[in-house]
Amino acid sequence: MGLSLPSPAIGYHLDPAAEHVRRVEDETAIQVLLEALNDPDCRDILDATSDVALTAAEVSETCDLPLSTTYRKLDHLTDAGLLEEGTRIRNSGKHTSEYRRLVESVIVSLTPSGETALHVANRRDAERIGSPAQ
């Protein structure tokens, strides 16, 4: 899966001042984000949507998940600010939602004072920078 940290993870540097990086400070937002990353199905969805936007049906098929589970996971990932939802325009006029991974990396670190710091680097090519978790 494509979400593993570069090896070795120690020494990996993320510039928190970069415009595509945001610090997540709200405890509820941190919890939602970490719960999503702890879920293997959510990680599979993030991997599947890293290169191409997929509809819920495509995610369901690609990740071998029931459609009802897929919708729950997509909602959770979108609420966590890890996926963005767009609209796939169809010639038939029956448009559908599609999803793609919004983030490039999530870094959890400890500050010198022992507090947890969480930084999210959004993909530089994302149409939308930021999320409700900001």
Score class of each variant (00 low, 15 high):
D75I: 04
T49F: 14
S60F: 01
L77Q: 07
C63R: 03
L46C: 07
D44S: 15
Y71V: 04
C63W: 11
T70G: 02
A56V: 08
H76A: 14
A56Q: 09
T55E: 08
D64K: 06
T49K: 12
T55N: 03
E58F: 04
T62F: 08
G81T: 09
T62V: 10
T49M: 14
S50K: 14
R72Y: 01
D44P: 00
V52M: 11
D44C: 13
V59M: 05
D75Y: 04
P66F: 07
D51Q: 15
A56N: 08
A57T: 11
L74Y: 00
S60E: 12
L65N: 00
T49S: 15
V52R: 15
G81F: 09
S50M: 14
S68T: 09
V52W: 09
D51K: 15
P66Q: 13
L46W: 03
C63T: 14
A80L: 10
G81V: 10
L77H: 11
A48S: 11
T49V: 13
D47C: 10
L65K: 02
I45P: 01
H76C: 06
H76K: 12
C63S: 14
A57K: 07
D47H: 11
I45F: 05
L46M: 13
D51G: 12
H76P: 00
L54K: 00
L65R: 03
L65P: 00
S60L: 05
R72H: 06
T78Q: 09
T62Y: 04
T49A: 15
T55I: 06
A80G: 10
D75L: 06
T70I: 02
